[in-house]
Computed example of a mutant assay.
Amino acid sequence: MSKHFITRQHIFRLDSDVIILKNSEKYLKDYPDDDFTSKIRDECLTYNSYLYSKKIGLLRNKQVKNYLNEKNIDFKSKSYQRIFNGDFKHGGRFYGPWWLNVPSELRQFITINNNKTVEYDYSSLIIHQIYSEVGLNYFEENTYSDDPYLLRGVPDTERKINKAIIQIALNCSDLESLNAALLRQYKKGKLIGNKPRKKEIEKRLNIFKEMNPKIADYVYKQIALRFQFQDSEIARKIINRCYSYLIPVLSVHDSFIVEETNSNFIIDTMNNAIKDTGLTSIPLIK
């Protein structure tokens, strides 16, 4: 481009569609619009315009500054897209804004209009979704812990890796693909420490199945995208209700960030969204 004297002033950026459909190879897939896609596009565009008018940033403490010294954040990137996979009943989560790419431990420093924020999420949502699909309640079936990612005989400090193993196993077909996906998580820095060997991965997965025998068949069934559609629709309900009250909310899949003064409102909204979905196993909000 520089060879031909092309500069930024020669480039016009056309915003891409906010409703994205991908095929099984993750390439973009054309689709005809219908009432559903038109409705969710209008909602997404309206909410993006609303967020654009808000100042969303990070407190400049030592932890944040160290991160910004290594990573660039485009704080102007505040637009959501919904990305579906294969059809409009799989995937559909909200992606795009800069806060989705910030490490979870830094999200506590996000500010909205220079105000401190709080973040609440549905604890272990996909596990409760699966239990609900078979008409059961996790808390009645598994009395070991409120947290499905705490495994009997495994130190609680290993929760994060347990969670990764279980969630990936629900969206892959066998141990080999699970191990490969886990390795990618370590290479990207999303998991730290030493990656467990295959035997240890298999052992922990077997403990999970023994502790949750009535949903053990869901492992290696590649069902995560189907449940992602349900949680994306829960997020949509929450975003729409917050917008109707002109309360800015930042969705990070199944967690939601609002100004501190709106803590009670977001908890109430999240509870109502779950009730409307009709789950028989209700996740805790933390």
Rank of each mutant, 00 (worst) to 15 (best):
K160C: 00
R152S: 12
N23H: 00
T143W: 05
P97M: 04
N113V: 05
Y47V: 09
Q129R: 02
R8T: 14
D254S: 00
N66E: 11
I83V: 15
E43N: 14
R8C: 13
K198W: 11
V18Y: 01
S49Y: 04
T157L: 01
K237P: 05
Y67G: 13
D276Y: 14
G189H: 09
E233D: 06
I19N: 09
I20D: 12
K190H: 10
F94L: 08
R236K: 14
V258I: 12
E176H: 10
Y31F: 08
W98Y: 14
K62G: 10
S251F: 04
A181R: 13
L170R: 13
D147E: 13
I73L: 15
D34L: 12
K26D: 14
I239D: 13
H253M: 05
I165D: 06
N66H: 14
N162R: 12
V64C: 13
I126F: 12
T261D: 10
P32N: 13
N262Q: 02
L150P: 06
T261S: 09
K71P: 04
K71E: 10
E210R: 01
K195F: 09
K29Q: 10
S124A: 15
V64F: 10
Q81T: 05
K78G: 06
I40F: 04
D87R: 14
R60I: 00
K286L: 06
Y138N: 02
V102G: 01
G193R: 01
F88G: 01
